[in-house]
Amino acid sequence: MTMGWISERSRDFTALYGRRVESWIGVEMALRDDVGDGSPQFSDPTVPCLQLLGLQACLDGGDVLTVGIYQDVDVFGLWPRPRAEARFQDASLFTGALRWRRLTELPTGRVEYVATFADTGVLAEASLRIDARPLLLIAGELMETWDDELRFCRLDESVLVFTDPTAALQAPWTTSRSDLVQIAEAPDERGPTGQTTSTARWPLSRGRRRHGRR
């Protein structure tokens, strides 16, 4: 995808600024398909995030933002779409290693800040602050190994959702987050010299910032 397309998708995220998130729904992907009794495992105390096929933010005014994944050659990125998708409204479509549910653990309220980040030519991450609580979306996947461990992979086929960005910073990623480049933010919190004036930042990575890409 071109940088123009990525910038357009970034604007779908930054358009959330000032809106109210009323609730979240999503389709959760199992961390492990079979834990010995034939049933999938959806949670693990060592995993500080949700692994989702996609999710929807239900907004004030009846609007919806759907966040899924797109593929660009051999990497995957976040794909926000400012509309509801029927498949995410029908819980009966998802069984086994997929389950539909209301994501009550995610923050609701006014969206106070949004920033988007690219890596390897895709929209890799989105960071939000909602009613003073952080929310970090990362394109990635938790890959189960032969010895039942989980590998934290970036730029992969699901949406990893963190409510504690410090946990994302400390996660044992198989590839570094250090090359993240900021694409857009709302509000634009730069001072007159181009320096950020706000101190309300969540730890994302030790990557670079690119201002002015809106």
Rank of each mutant, 00 (worst) to 15 (best):
D164E: 15
Y17V: 00
R201H: 14
L150R: 10
S176H: 10
A97F: 08
I138L: 15
T108I: 12
T95Q: 14
G191V: 07
R11I: 00
D37H: 03
P107Q: 08
A126M: 11
T46R: 14
L169R: 13
D148Q: 15
R19M: 10
A84N: 11
D119W: 12
P107M: 10
T145S: 15
Q182M: 15
C49N: 08
L136C: 05
M3E: 14
A184E: 13
I25N: 05
L59D: 01
I183S: 03
L150M: 07
L55H: 01
T175D: 13
D60M: 00
R129A: 03
D147L: 10
R214I: 03
F76Q: 11
D90L: 09
A84R: 15
R20M: 02
D164T: 04
T196Y: 10
T145G: 15
L93K: 04
L155H: 14
W146H: 15
V64C: 04
V21K: 11
T95E: 07
H211S: 06
A139D: 02
P107C: 08
F13D: 02
W202M: 10
G38H: 03
F88W: 14
C58N: 10
L52N: 05
S198C: 08
G38P: 02
R129T: 07
A139R: 12
L31D: 00
M3S: 12
E144Y: 05
L136N: 07
T196W: 13
P40H: 11
T175L: 11
V159Q: 08
R206C: 06
V67N: 05
G36H: 04
A186H: 08
G212N: 06
T14A: 06
F88P: 01
L59P: 00
T46N: 15
L52D: 01
F13Y: 12
D147K: 14
P45A: 12
L180N: 13
G109H: 06
R20I: 01
W5I: 03
S43V: 05
G194P: 01
R133H: 11
T193K: 11
T174C: 10
S10T: 08
T193S: 13
A132Y: 10
F117G: 03
R210C: 11
T163H: 02
R99E: 03
Q71G: 07
R87K: 12
D72M: 06
D119N: 14
P80D: 05
I138R: 13
R19E: 04
E157T: 08
Q56I: 04
V159G: 09
L155S: 10
W5Y: 09
G191R: 11
E189M: 13
C58D: 00
T14D: 05
G212Q: 07
F162D: 09
G18N: 01
C58G: 02
D34L: 01
D131H: 13
L128R: 11
R11P: 00
L98R: 13
L78V: 08
I138K: 06
R177Y: 04
D63T: 01
G36Y: 02
V21E: 02
R129E: 05
E189R: 15
F42N: 05
G62T: 00
A139V: 00
W100G: 03
I25C: 06
Y17H: 13
T95V: 05
I6S: 07
D12P: 00
T166R: 15
A84I: 10
A167M: 09
T199V: 06
G121A: 08
W5Q: 14
S39V: 02
G62Q: 03
A15N: 07
I69H: 05
D188G: 01
G121Y: 04
A132Q: 15
M3A: 10
M1S: 09
D131R: 11
